[in-house]
C-alpha cells in the first residue's frame, strides 16, 4: 500500500515562537507538498481551516473553510505542490485557559479510496496584536 507524506507550510502573518500569528480578517496563504511513494488514486485532496475547543470540556469543532485542491492520480515518487489561501474570520480568537482553550488549525487530508486517509495539521494563532489598539 502506498504511503503519502504531507508537508504543510503557512505564509503571511507574523512569525511567533513555533507558530505563525495572524490578525482576524487576515489572508492566510500556504502550500501543501505531497510525496506519494507509489501511484495513489486521490478522490480529493482537501485543505481546511478549522478551530476547535480543547481542555476539560467536550470538544466543539467548527470547519470554517475547505478547498478541494486536487482529484485524480498522484504519480508515485513525484512530489507535487498545491497552493491554498483562506480569509481568517474575525472570531474566535486563539486562547489558552484553565479549562477551555481555542485552537486554530490548517488541516490537509488526502481522501484515498479504501484506505486510511493521510493527514497533516499545522496550528496557528488568530489574535489581534496589542499594537492594533
Amino acid at each position: 500500500m502506498a504511503t503519502v507524506a504531507l508537508e504543510l507550510t503557512l505564509r503571511g502573518g507574523e512569525e511567533g515562537a513555533g507558530y505563525r500569528r495572524y490578525a482576524p480578517g487576515d489572508l492566510l496563504q500556504g502550500s501543501l507538498i505531497v510525496y506519494p511513494d507509489a501511484d495513489v488514486n486521490c478522490k480529493h485532496l482537501y485543505a481546511r481551516l478549522l478551530w476547535h475547543t480543547a481542555g476539560r470540556g467536550s470538544q466543539y469543532l467548527e470547519k470554517i473553510s475547505e478547498q478541494d485542491l486536487f482529484q485524480g492520480t498522484l504519480p508515485g515518487n513525484m512530489p507535487r505542490s498545491f497552493e491554498f489561501e483562506f480569509v481568517l474570520p474575525h472570531q474566535p480568537w486563539s486562547f489558552e485557559g484553565h479549562y477551555v482553550s481555542v485552537v486554530w488549525k490548517v488541516q490537509a487530508q488526502v481522501d484515498v479510496a479504501w484506505a486510511s486517509d493521510p493527514k497533516a495539521e499545522m496550528g496557528l494563532v488568530v489574535r489581534p496584536s496589542s499594537s492594533n489598539q
Partner: peptide
Amino acid sequence: PPDGMHTVKVRRNQL
C-alpha cells in the same frame, strides 16, 4: 484587559 479574551459561547464550552 487588552490581552483578554472576548465572550465565546459554544456547545459545552463557554468563556
